[in-house]
Amino acid sequence: MVEVSTRETYGKTLVELGKENRDIVVLDADLSPSTMTHFFAQEFPERFFDCGLEEQNMIGIAAGLAASGKTVFASTFAIFASCRCFDQLRMCLSQTGLNVKIVATHGGISVGEDGTSHHAIEDLALYCSLPGFTVVVPADAIEAAEAVKTAANTYGPFYIRLSRPKTPLVYSKDYHFTLGKAVTMRGGKDATIIAMGIMVARALAASDVLAKQGIDCRVINMHTLKPLDEEAIIKAASETGAIVVAEEHLAQGGLGSRVAQVVARERPVPMSFVNLKDSYALSGKAEELLQRYGLTAKDIEKAVKSVVGRK
């Protein structure tokens, strides 16, 4: 599969958006060469503000700009965009509903060698807990571009989580993204894998292997965590009778928790979860970490087998 960087796509998409809309302003916290907002900074220096290592201040400035009619994109690493400024997100963006898009790169443990301090594994729980926020985790660079464009044209606070490494394309160029509407990547009747972000490509790989073993697996890309496409979940539970959720996030408060709430309330079926258990990951290469902490296609395959066995 072709691998493309979601953050590079983000940076280039921002430039396109900046050309169309003069009210787009971009903020960063000393990470623009990594978050790729530097493309926008080069093109529109007057509309770019580097807030230095002041993430809390950056959120406040973003809110003030948005309150004055601007569409603001603010970027940093996912760990700092969530844990470092949570009260500011709550007060200035969630409570006000202001038009600020937090696009964070370096989500999850695929950050790799930088280690525990830089692995954002609780960001989605934090953002999903904030009323009014829309939370999106694109599966590839094509979806990332679409999600960023949609955010620019949809009023209100957004969190979009991107990755550090290049990731395989799971979509073709003609893909059309609909906010809050999950994508069925592959049909199936024996079980459903609901995945997000980098786990979507892994879910597809797992379903290939399972198909050869006679297990017909549906694969859903739940790119929007909030608002959640409950209809797709209920349909999957009803039609396939077993659900596996795969995410690059802690067990607590992420996609798995959110899907489980819907399944428990609407259509209880056996479930299994491929995610990070209650601990931090260490330094290592991205792929080594994903193997070590149980986030591979093989892990998804095992989870599907176990959940099918409990039907």
Binding site: V25, E46, R47, F49, Q56, N57, M58, I59, G60, I61, A62, A63, G64, L65, A66, A67, S68, G69, K70, D87, Q88, R90, M91, C92, Q95, T96
Partner: peptide, 25 residues
Amino acid sequence: VEMSAGSLGMGLSFGIGVALAARLD
């Protein structure tokens, strides 16, 4: 009322954003 406040220390940041918007516009 221009800003939702109550958790201290946030107003100056918000004010900078508002002031920068004036400059841009």
